[in-house]
Nucleic acid binder design. Structure first.
Length: 224
DNA sequence: GCGACAG
DNA sequence: ATCTTGTCGC
C-alpha cells in the first residue's frame, strides 16, 4: 500500500468535482465488461475486458493480463486495488468500446467516486457501475418483474438504480460512472441482459479472467 | 460504542 | 474475491 487510507479518501474528495453525469452524445454500437480474478493465497490477479457488439451481444475483441495487486480490499476504496490491473487490460485493447461496464459502483459511493467513476475520469471514457450488492444509500424494493427499478437515495440525492434484471431474482445495483446519464446506464445494462441476473458484459469478462487463472487461455489481445 | 461495508 | 456439490424452487 503506497498510499494511506486517509490519502486515498482525500484523493476521492478532490476527484469528485471532475465527475460528469450527462447523456451520451451518440448512439453506441459496442459495450464492454471488465472484471478481475484473484488468487487465493498470493497477490496475483488476472484482469480482463471483453467488448461486445450492441445489438447482438457478439464478442468483438478481448484483452487479458496477469499482474499483482498492492492494495488490500477496503469498502469504499475498491478502485485503489483494482484500477492498476484494469488499466493494463484497457491499454492492451486496440479498439475501445463506446461504453465500459465495471464490476462495482459508479457514483453510488460515499464520496460519489466508485470504481467505475474513478476509472472513467482517469481514462476519460464513458463508464457504468454494475454491482451485485449495495454500498451506501437507501432504496425501496422494485417490483418483481424484469425491468422494474427504483432509485437509490443518499442524503436526499439520487445516486443509483436498483434494477430487477431477471424476474423473481434479487436486483442488481446500477449507477452512472462517468460521461453517461442515469437513463443511459439503465438502458444500456438492460440491453446487455439475456436470460441471467448479470449482464453479458460482466458474465463474459468474469468467464475470461477465470479461464486465464486456470491456464485455459492465453493472456493478450484478441480480435474476433 | 455499534452496525454497515462494492470486490 | 475465494473455498466447492448437491439441491431446492420458480
Amino acid at each position: 500500500m503506497y498510499i494511506s487510507v486517509k490519502e486515498a479518501k482525500a484523493k476521492q474528495e478532490k476527484m469528485r468535482e471532475q465527475v460528469v453525469i450527462k447523456p451520451l452524445e451518440k448512439e453506441i454500437s459496442t459495450v464492454a465488461g471488465a472484471d478481475l480474478s484473484f488468487d487465493k493465497n498470493s497477490d496475483k490477479v488476472q484482469a480482463g475486458i471483453v467488448i461486445l457488439r450492441l445489438p447482438g451481444l457478439k464478442v468483438v475483441a478481448r484483452s487479458a493480463v496477469t499482474t499483482e495487486v498492492d492494495f488490500t480490499y477496503i469498502p469504499g476504496l475498491l478502485a485503489f486495488r483494482e484500477l492498476p490491473p484494469l488499466k493494463k487490460a484497457w491499454k492492451l485493447l486496440k479498439i475501445k468500446p463506446d461504453v465500459l461496464i465495471l464490476d462495482g459502483h459508479g457514483i453510488a459511493h460515499p464520496r460519489r467516486l466508485g470504481l467505475a467513476t474513478h476509472f472513467g475520469i482517469l481514462m476519460d471514457h464513458p463508464t457504468i457501475g454494475c454491482a451485485k450488492n449495495n454500498l451506501t444509500g437507501n432504496f425501496e424494493q422494485p417490483r418483481s418483474e424484469k425491468g422494474s427499478y427504483r432509485y437509490i437515495i443518499d442524503d436526499g440525492e439520487r445516486i443509483g438504480i436498483v434494477l430487477r434484471s431477471r424476474t423473481n431474482v434479487n436486483p442488481i445495483f446500477v449507477s452512472p460512472g462517468h460521461k453517461v446519464s442515469f437513463e443511459d446506464s439503465r438502458e444500456i445494462v438492460m440491453r446487455c441482459l439475456s436470460r441471467y441476473k448479470l449482464p453479458e458484459t460482466t458474465r463474459k469478462a468474469h468467464a475470461l479472467v477465470n479461464r486465464l487463472r486456470r491456464g485455459e487461455t492465453e493472456p493478450g489481445y484478441i480480435e474476433f
